[in-house]
Amino acid sequence: MLNDYLLTVISNIGMISLLAISAYILLITGEISFGQQAYFGISAYSGAIATTLWGWPFWVSLLFGSLLAGIAAGLVSALTVRISGLYFSISTLAFSEMVRLFLLKFSYQKEIDGELLGPNGAEGFGGIRWIFDNNISVFQYTLLIYLILFLVIICLFFIERSGLGMIFRMIGQDPMLTRVHGINPVNYKVFAAVLAGFIAGLGGMLYAHSFTFIEPQIFNVMLGVHSLAYGLIGGLGTVFGPLIGVALDIGLLESIRVIHGYRMIVFGGLVAIMLILMPRGILDEKRVYRLRLALRNWLHV
């Protein structure tokens, strides 16, 4: 039977996958964001405040945190949409650090059942007890995470096969040619950013309630760098690419105790090797297309 440690690893993979998918959406529109962890963090804090301090229902809080993350992402994107490349990456990094530094100073505490709860700067935000209060087992919560991940994947799967998905990839490959095709990339880039922020937010809110304790330091730039690398390793041809990256890193490197200490060395090396050998990851556009053709032929036979 699944033990709790294995379940924690599996649920971790699910939550971080949402962050990786968020970074992936921006990667296919041609932008490298070092700041998706900010939206993960915004939603983790606001969602946890909603359930713990305000007593809101879980699903409402989940939507609240994720929408807030999406709105923040939309505002940042509206400001940065006209810059691209390195400048875009730097501005996303700057924003995410602003969020982290704000959380280090942010204190909002309330007495709940005789206990002072809520975020308190660098000391973090503990006592996010929704899971315990509602008697949710680790197994049930893992199922919940995978239900949400599944819904996100279904949505993205349809978006990718739609005209919208094609426009995202057109913008990612050649923005000028996309404009010549009568498409204004600005609207689509902001939309992609809102979508990415929302999905990162789903992951962040789930993360806060899974670990019951969060602190600003969790949402530092390394989390963002990892979420970018997951797409680059797993592949940018399909939404399943980043999931492979997450499974490789968290499933193998972080969770197997023997290699845990060498995780960053192995992971860094893996990223470097992948960028040379498979610049667009394991499941890149070509392999995905071949797999799809093979699958289609197989289904028709």
């Binding site: 094609m166 057109m170 009568g182 667009r280 297309y289």
Partner: peptide, 20 residues
Amino acid sequence: RIFERMTVIENIISAMISHE
């Protein structure tokens, strides 16, 4: 200028979806 990471037929379709 073509969309290099799309297939030939996708490139052609890309010119049509923007019509709609």
